[in-house]
Nucleic acid binder design. Structure first.
Lengths: 211, 211
DNA sequence: ACGTGACGGGACGTTCAGGTCCAGAACGCT
DNA sequence: AGCGTTCTGGACCTGAACGTCCCGTCACGT
């Protein structure tokens, strides 16, 4: 997430440590609220109150609400990718994939599926409206798929996954299953559909292992 | 969709043919706008203009915007289920599943993935806010899964699908793959991820056929 | 210590969406 | 045909959310 903060601070060079801290407080508070309530239901006054700042700060750091939303999208993108990189950068076995699945399911079970995936929810809410944010999120999904695909390729290199399996396609399928699972779980307020979706995707990968 | 209309007309018994027509115009216009622009970005004035009605009509037929949103959710639910029932009620072979996939992909390709699935988009946008609408959508997903599961069971009965396959779990996985595919396609403005997601799910079903 | 520029607070303006109301037109029934 | 009921139109109200502004405060360099 430091990436996102620095990317913007580079655009506005004069920024003291205090200012940067305020900006970070704003984005983090907004990220939390927008995840829980949705982007549209989160007002700037909510953000102001939650971040302990004031209106002028919001408009000191962001041109308008859309700019804040974009910053929030970048923050979630960085957070999710950091988390996933930690899980996937050393992925090299089917069991690693199972552990990945379990971590995601457990995390989502803790809130009964509510809120879904921060990226997925933002994507549907924002993609009709803000092209820039949509492209950020699209690139993030692609990066996420790449992390998975790299892991699958390592499984191929070490002879665990059949070499004729299409790692990129599998990665897209896994992320789609995950996102679809998030959506069904969120709608049903129940993690079970997410488990089923991921298990089916993993079952499919299992059929492609070198037995 | 007649179901949804009748369900409400039953609640408000006094309603002339003209009134019913007005109500239907409102819901249909709102459904279109909310699908394309999103629920939140659609104002009642938009609906009024698009339906060729007036404010008082909206509030004559619906208590508030949330009630209209619920009616729209019911309309989409009925529309999607009617469409899917037409495709799936006689599903009895793997090729039927492939045709189902092709129809969905083709339909979504026509708009480059934009807007996604009406049900899925509404679900994420509404589920944090309106429990009733969320439950309608959740029930619709379940019904949809059931249509698929019934088809899969027919494939088992006719000996095409292995009897130890879990039809319900497969159905959930297929719908999740579809919804995840919709989401990725919408974010990328490209149908390809949806194709990959569905193909992976179908590949998995293929491994469960009686060879 | 003193001045400059960034930071901070919050009152205020403006717009716009949701929701109300009432008078008149259309309908349907006897 | 006449009358009550329902439907229709659109003006109007209200509140809330976005965005502006101005002045006070703080930090840092000289």
């Amino acid at each position: 997430m430091s990436e996102a903060v620095e990317a913007v601070s580079a655009r506005t060079p004069r920024l003291t440590a205090r200012g940067a801290a305020t900006r970070a407080r704003i984005v983090e508070a907004a990220a939390e609220l927008m995840y829980v309530q949705g982007v549209n239901a989160t007002t700037l006054d909510d953000v102001r109150a939650a971040s302990g700042t004031s209106k002028s700060q919001l408009y000191n750091h962001f041109a308008d609400k859309d700019a804040l939303v974009r910053a929030v999208a970048e923050l979630w993108a960085a957070r999710v990718l950091a988390r996933e990189e930690a899980h996937l950068s050393r992925l090299n076995s089917f069991n690693g994939l199972v552990r990945w699945r379990n971590a995601l399911v457990q995390r989502n079970a803790a809130q009964n599926g509510a809120y879904g995936c921060a990226l997925g929810s933002m994507a549907t809410e924002v993609s009709d409206h803000d092209h820039e944010a949509r492209e950020t999120l699209s690139a993030t999904f692609q990066r996420w798929e790449q992390l998975l695909a790299d892991g699958l390729r390592r499984m191929q290199d070490s002879g665990r996954l059949r070499p004729d399996a299409d790692a990129d396609a599998l990665a897209t399928g896994l992320i789609a299953a995950l996102q679809g699972g998030y959506l069904l779980a969120q709608t049903a307020r129940n993690v079970r559909p997410m488990e089923l979706a991921l298990d089916m995707a993993l079952d499919h990968v299992r059929t492609l292992l070198t037995s």
